[in-house]
Design a protein around this nucleic acid. Structure first.
Length: 486
DNA sequence: TCTAACACTTG
DNA sequence: TCAAGTGTTAG
């Protein structure tokens, strides 16, 4: 597993040789992007702001690959459900003293809704109208580069929901996506095997007998053990042969570029599964979470529990050696609600908003990467070079938005050049499903306004989501905070 | 199509 | 012991 720096990268299996080549290409592109641009180009300007060395590495990449291979999905609920695998990244190259805000965005993959029938996905209609999305601000934000780099940055607590009125600021997914046939069994099995909370569904003899007993008692036909296993195993599925093997498929050979200063290295990338580029522009609702007892603050509180991986050393020798655990930072927050109060910033960017669209700012190389349906961008910028004072979840008025806009406008030309993309497929369930499209790093089009924290529970999202087959793209973007040494 | 209850897990 | 997070299941 990802227990070293290398572990964040591509597996060292022969099948991934293409991926390694891509990785090398991406690094080369990044270097070129950082060095070959004219000083007056946006790219160069971006680089000059100290963004050139920033890298984001996906944690547990192999697990992500497994889910990607079978087409990941998740059932979402009104209460919100966590993503699995959880999204954790290692960030390097930040200015240790500069403060950054780290965001995760959800981007729709297309404007269709689909159903899974007859072992295939088919379009059942048009997606519901685009709605403002939400950006999930990492609860540690703003924090210094040193803080972000100290250990894994975890979005484990991020929940996805289809509840428009969700009062906790859980991220709402977007309707989408592609008609690719993958049976749900494999994803289910992967989650059961890997998610501790789903251990109850792991197949032990006793468990299966118990389950069968329950089925019997409810007048279900008695199903042979082999059949029971078949349900959750991919081995007997019509797609088993091609989906159980974890490898870098030919899709890994797809070209992509990663050439701006913010380098989401190819290590972040998962092989694309399908050629469905994101087509839907998204406006924004910025939301973040904060602790009930501390309010969102513009300063870093030493007592606040980091939402980054709290004990990476336990699972990752790399951090064991490189990142000594912090002491005295693990204030315990018992409940989710106590841990995370939503700081949600509604925005209704009009079509004429000068803010660049998603396509404009972040996906300009998609035509060359048709296999990817999502775009991830990582953008970080030293705050001390930006024309605003601070950005936090604590603001009590709207000036943030223009400031944030300025950030986005400032950086968007470069953002478009760097993206890591990968896509996951979904499968069927009678519950709302989210298609997890993988980490995305990036500042997207900025919201037109921000609301004070007191409004964060308001829901500026009067839109009806289609409940099924949601597609989510998640990732991080870093918006710079001010620099302490400026 | 959607929801809530269920049995199970971890912490 | 409890809260919270899982996929399954029935209504």
């Amino acid at each position: 597993m990802a227990d070293s720096e290398e572990g964040f990268g591509l597996p060292t299996t022969p099948a991934d040789s293409e991926a390694k080549e891509l990785q090398a290409e991406a690094k080369q592109d990044a270097q070129l992007g950082a060095t070959s641009k004219s000083p007056t180009s946006p790219q160069a300007a971006f680089t000059q702001q100290g963004m050139e060395g920033i890298k984001v590495f996906l944690h547990e990449r192999e697990l992500w690959l497994k889910f990607h291979e079978v087409g990941t999905e998740m059932i979402i609920t009104k209460a919100g459900r966590r993503m699995f695998p959880s999204y954790k990244v290692k960030v390097t190259g930040l200015n240790p003293k500069t403060k950054y805000i780290l965001l995760m965005d959800i981007v729709p993959a297309d404007d269709h809704r689909y159903k899974f029938a007859d072992n295939k996905w088919s379009v059942t209609g048009k997606a519901e109208p685009a709605m403002p999305g939400r950006l999930y601000v990492h609860p540690d934000s703003p924090a210094t580069g040193a803080h972000w780099m100290r250990q894994l940055v975890s979005f484990q607590k991020l929940k996805l929901t289809n509840n428009h009125l969700d009062p906790f600021g859980h991220t709402m997914p977007w309707t989408c996506d592609e008609p690719v046939a993958f049976p749900p069994f494999q994803i289910t099995q992967l989650k059961i095997e890997n998610n501790p909370f789903a251990k109850g569904f792991r197949g032990s003899d006793d468990m299966e007998l118990h389950r069968m007993s329950r089925m019997q008692s409810k007048e279900y036909p008695v199903v042979p053990r082999s059949t029971v296993r078949q349900k959750v195993s991919s081995n007997h599925s019509p797609f088993s042969g091609e989906t159980r093997v974890l490898s870098a498929s030919s899709n890994l050979g797809s070209q992509y570029q990663c050439e701006n200063g913010v380098s989401s290295t190819s290590q972040d990338l998962l092989p694309p599964a399908n050629p469905y580029p994101i087509s839907q522009e998204h406006s924004q609702i910025y939301h973040c979470t904060k602790r009930k007892d501390e309010e969102c603050s513009t300063t870093e509180h030493p007592y606040k529990k980091p939402y980054m991986e709290t004990s990476p050393a336990e699972e990752d020798p790399f951090y064991r050696s490189s990142y000594p655990q912090q002491q005295g930072l693990n204030t315990s927050y018992r409940t989710e609600s106590a841990q995370r109060q939503a700081c949600m910033y509604a925005s209704s960017a009009p079509p004429t908003d000068p803010v660049p669209s998603l396509e404009d700012i972040s996906c300009n190389t998609w035509p060359s990467v048709p296999s990817y349906s999502s775009c991830t961008v990582s953008a970080m910028q030293p705050m001390d070079r930006l024309p605003y004072q601070h950005f936090s979840a604590h603001f009590t008025s709207g000036p943030l938005m223009p400031r944030l806009s300025s950030v986005a406008n400032h950086t968007s030309p470069q953002i478009g050049d760097t993206h890591s993309m990968f896509q996951h497929q979904t499968s069927v369930s009678h519950q709302p499903i989210v298609r997890q499209c993988g980490p995305q790093t990036g500042i997207q089009s900025p919201p037109s306004s921000l609301q004070p924290a007191e409004f964060l529970y308001s829901h500026g999202v009067p839109r009806t989501l289609s409940p099924h087959q949601y597609h989510s793209v998640h990732g991080v973007g870093m918006v710079p905070e001010w620099s302490e040494n400026s």
